[in-house]
Design a protein around this nucleic acid. Structure first.
Lengths: 128, 128
DNA sequence: TCCATTGTTCAATGGTTGTTGAACATATGA
DNA sequence: TCATATGTTCAACAACCATTGAACAATGGA
């Protein structure tokens, strides 16, 4: 399979990185990669979304320079580009991972104090 | 002027925060607020975008819980919600600010090594 | 060789985003 | 009171995003 384009370490763009992580599915992918501390087969994420949708999310993360993708047989493996990101933005990735974990523990369900005053709520899109 | 809605400290959502910062204009606003270490008048950002566009960006940041907005006379003041963010995501804000500063120093112009192989480039939208 | 696995690409679709100018609101000062 | 300064809201618009199912590509067995 054709190896896809990966941005060089020193062309990493913070805006792209943050955009790539401002999505619940991709944040979850990040957490799993961080906890595994190793490459993960793409197929191991199929609980998160459909195959084609995952392909889309992987591409987003790859284009942002967050992950690298390599083929092995009929499978594909996803790996965090820890060193490259650390070089450009020291400390950032660990902090993002820590915050993401903290978020998944308390998944925003704790609706503190009656929000009677028509508080705006994020749509949290899913079905189309 | 009607005081707008501000999300409570413990309803801060990481996805919203990252989305709010995945934009060059808003990252610049963040940097200025951090460097000033004080509230800044909205009018002091008019070099970044039109008035109405700034209003939009301020709202995004406010809804994400990044900043608070308060009126004073005919002016409005924008302030970083440091403490609230720190409580929910300790260390995150400082790290984001540091990364943002690091980015503005080397503003992505350093096109290292001839990218002859049709590398994809982010459109970096501006005009409409 | 044929088939099953694994993942990508494509077109379509509906929602969201960033941007603009014009109109509006609100407070201050002459 | 009337004008000025400062921001907000609105409708409109193009670009982009997340999602889907169907079709496609490539690899590794039976």
């Amino acid at each position: 399979m054709r190896e896809p384009f990966h941005p060089s370490a020193d062309s990493l763009d913070l805006v792209a990185i943050l955009a790539a992580l401002s999505d619940p599915t991709r944040l979850t992918i990040l957490i799993r990669l961080a906890e595994a501390d190793a490459a993960i087969r793409c197929g191991d994420f199929t609980d998160l979304a459909t195959k084609s949708n995952l392909s889309y999310h992987f591409a987003k993360m790859r284009e942002a320079g967050l992950v690298s993708l390599r083929s092995e047989g009929t499978s594909r493996f996803l790996a965090l580009r820890r060193n490259d990101i650390e070089r450009q933005f020291p400390g950032l990735l660990d902090q993002l991972i820590a915050s993401a974990k903290r978020m998944e523990d308390k998944p925003l369900n704790s609706q503190s104090a009656a929000p009677t005053d028509a508080a705006e709520s994020k749509p949290q899109r899913k079905r189309v």
